[in-house]
Amino acid sequence: MSRSLIGDYIDSFRNPGFWTYSTWLELVTKYRRSRLGLFWALCPAVIYMFGVGGFFGHLQGHEPGMFIPHLGIGYVVFRLITISLSECTTTLPGHSSFILDGRVRLTDYILRVVAKAMFYFVMALPAIVVALIISSTFRWEGLIIAIPCFFLVLLNIGWMGAIVAVLGARLQDVHELIGSILMFAFLFTPIIWFGSQAPLGTVRGTIARINPLYHMVESVRAPLLGEPIANSTFLYLTLMLLGGWLIASIVYRRYARFVPVWI
C-alpha cells in the first residue's frame, strides 16, 4: 500500500505523542546523570561562537562584534540542518523494531530526528542572544523576515529528511555519503567567511551559491545582521521547496512500503 508523504506528516503532527515523548525521553536519559546536565547542550555553541569565532575573527582581521554573530548564527542553523539530515539516514533502521511491529508512519521517526535537532538549536539561543547583544549590526526588525525564512528552512529539511531516510533504509552507505557531502558543503557555506569574499560572478562565488546550505543559512542570518537577502536566494529556496517536495512525495509514495523489508 503506497503512502502519502504530506498525509503522513499531517497525521504525525495531529498525533505527536510518539515522536515528542520518545525524543524527550532520549534527552532526559542522556543528560540526567551528568553533573552539568543541559549545560553540555549549550557548551558546543558557546565554544564555537566565542572561541573559534574570536580566533578566526582575529586571524582574518574582523571585528568581534561583526564576526562572532555572523559565525554564531551560521553555525547553529548549519548544525540544525546537518544533524537532521545526517541522523535521518539511520533513523529507520534504528527504529526497526517499531516499524516491524506495525508503526509504519515513517514521518514519526523523521520528526523525532528534527525535534532533537531543534532542541539543540533552542539550547544555543542564549549564546546567540549574547552574540547579537555585542553585534554592531543587529537589527530587531530583521526578525520579521528571519522567522518566516527559518520556517522555510524547516520545510526544506522536511523533504530532504524524507528522501535521505528512505535511501538510508535501503543503502547503509548513504549515511557516510551524506556525512561527507555535508562536511564538504561546510567549506562552501559562509560561516567562517563572509559571502562578500566569494562575490557573484566569480568561480568560487558560483560554486558557493550552488550549495543549498548557502541560501538556507543566509536567509535566516542576513536580515538579523542588517544585510540584504539576494533575490536569487528567495528564488533558490522557493524552487527547492516546490521541486523538493514533489520529488520527495514521489520517492516516498513509491518506496516507503518497502522499508520494512529493507530494514
Rank of each mutant, 00 (worst) to 15 (best):
R204N: 00
V251M: 13
V220R: 03
R204D: 02
I229H: 06
I229R: 14
L242F: 12
E227W: 07
L239M: 11
V203R: 10
L239D: 01
S249C: 10
G226L: 14
V217E: 11
N211A: 04
S232C: 00
S232Q: 12
L242G: 10
T206Y: 12
I207Q: 10
L239V: 15
L239R: 07
I210H: 04
L235P: 00
I250D: 05
F234L: 14
M216Q: 11
M240F: 08
R209W: 09
Y214N: 05
N231Y: 08
E218K: 03
I250M: 15
T202G: 07
G244M: 10
V220M: 07
P228R: 07
A230Q: 13
S232I: 08
G243Q: 11
I229E: 05
P228L: 04
Y236Q: 03
A222D: 05
G205E: 08
P228D: 04
M240K: 04
P228I: 07
I247F: 15
L239F: 08
T202P: 06
I207Y: 11
R209Y: 07
S219F: 09
L241C: 11
N231F: 12
G243N: 11
Y214I: 06
A230R: 13
R204F: 06
M216T: 02
E218C: 01
H215K: 11
I247L: 15
A208T: 13
I229F: 10
G226H: 12
W245C: 05
I210A: 14
Y236A: 01
T206L: 15
T233P: 11
